[in-house]
């Protein structure tokens, strides 16, 4: 029967054609030759018109089967080829993922900025606002108003750089306390970070360094409030479980004055090299604001009381990051700076 032969013939042609197809794009062309609008199978199907009616059903079925089989064969090969081609592409495109990254090298903040930001974020949560006073101060703001008159031995605690008989590089950010109290009525909660200067130069002292001063003046402020705030500070800066210890000290502008130690965050207080075996590390000085200082600023010490604290930012940075030489902070050595991506 003619139709059967034709079908066989076409199927043989398809087999032959498929055997020669190596890439999917070519397969598509071949497919069109058989299944396209003018393809051989389509042409054959167009011939259905001439088939006698009693055969139409049979021939129609045969041709449909032919088409279905052909499509199947094309699809199978197509997916095989596609898979192979993808694999080849993957192989060709494979890269050495261990080669260096393309990235814009990120810079860093100076350790002091990191610590300063951390402290400001802790204390601003407690309601402290940031005030920055001038670095060049006069004798009044740096000493006299802080209850340190000219003949006071406490002036020897700080070797001062003088610029003129009455102008100096501030030795402490406490100078800013006075400027705030003169201009602002209680309640006062300020933080005053900034550079300070002392005539000292060795491995643990630098003629320029930074301090962060805190001041609270309000009704009914007590030494216990100072302790409570310091506990919070120690926990947030040095970690959960770090405790504070107050011990007597002396600053002319506070009374009582205390030195504040935190339990060693390295050894948990057992004693190690960092805490020199004592279990405690000295971090700051603090105290209740001296009545004479309040009075001098026009704040009634019978109504208001307050506390102040001051810490060396470099000291905190050195403790926190384990930096052993203060000089490194001011040298601008990029090998040092690039590490601070905290």
């Amino acid at each position: 029967m003619e139709i059967h032969e034709k079908i066989k013939e076409i199927e043989a042609k398809i087999s032959e054609a498929l055997a020669n197809v190596k890439i999917s794009r070519h397969l598509q062309e071949v497919k069109m030759k058989f299944l396209g609008k003018t393809g051989e199978i389509s042409e054959l199907m167009k011939g259905m018109r001439e088939v006698p009616p009693e055969k139409k059903r049979e021939v129609g079925q045969l041709l449909n089967e032919l088409r279905t089989r052909a499509e199947q064969r094309f699809d199978e090969l197509n997916s095989k080829l596609k898979e192979k081609e993808l694999e080849e592409r993957y192989a060709a495109e494979t890269i050495d993922v261990t080669m260096p990254a393309k990235k814009a090298e990120s810079g860093s903040f100076h350790p002091n900025t990191l610590i300063r930001n951390e402290l400001v974020s802790i204390f601003s949560g407690m309601g402290f606002e940031v005030f920055e006073g001038p670095e060049i101060e006069n004798d009044y703001y740096n000493f006299t108003a802080l209850n340190t008159p000219k003949d006071h031995p406490a002036r020897d605690m700080q070797d001062t750089f003088y610029l003129a008989p009455d102008l100096l590089l501030r030795t402490q950010t406490s100078a800013g306390q006075i400027r705030v109290m003169e201009n602002k009525k209680p309640p006062i909660k300020i933080l005053s970070p900034g550079k300070v200067y002392r005539s000292d130069d060795d491995a643990t002292h630098s003629p320029m360094f930074s301090q962060m001063e805190g001041l609270v003046v309000d009704k009914g402020i007590t030494l216990c409030d100072l302790k409570g705030m310091l506990d919070e500070f120690a926990r947030k800066v040095f970690g959960e479980g770090v405790k504070t210890r107050l011990r007597p000290s002396y600053f002319p502008f506070t009374e009582p004055s205390v030195e504040v130690d935190v339990s060693c965050f390295e050894c948990g207080g057992k004693g190690c090299r960092l805490c020199k075996g004592t279990g405690w590390i000295e971090v700051l000085g603090a105290g209740m604001v001296n009545r004479r200082v309040l009075e001098g600023c026009g704040v009634d010490p019978d109504v208001y009381s307050g506390f102040a604290f001051g810490m060396g930012i470099e000291r905190i940075a050195m403790l926190k990051y384990g930096i052993n030489n203060m000089k490194l902070l001011f040298e601008g050595d990029t090998r040092f700076l690039k590490q601070f991506k905290d």
Binding site: P187, D218, G220, D225
Partner: peptide, 8 residues
């Protein structure tokens, strides 16, 4: 003992 400025 630490307190947290109850009067402030």
């Amino acid at each position: 003992n630490g307190t947290f400025m109850p009067s402030a």
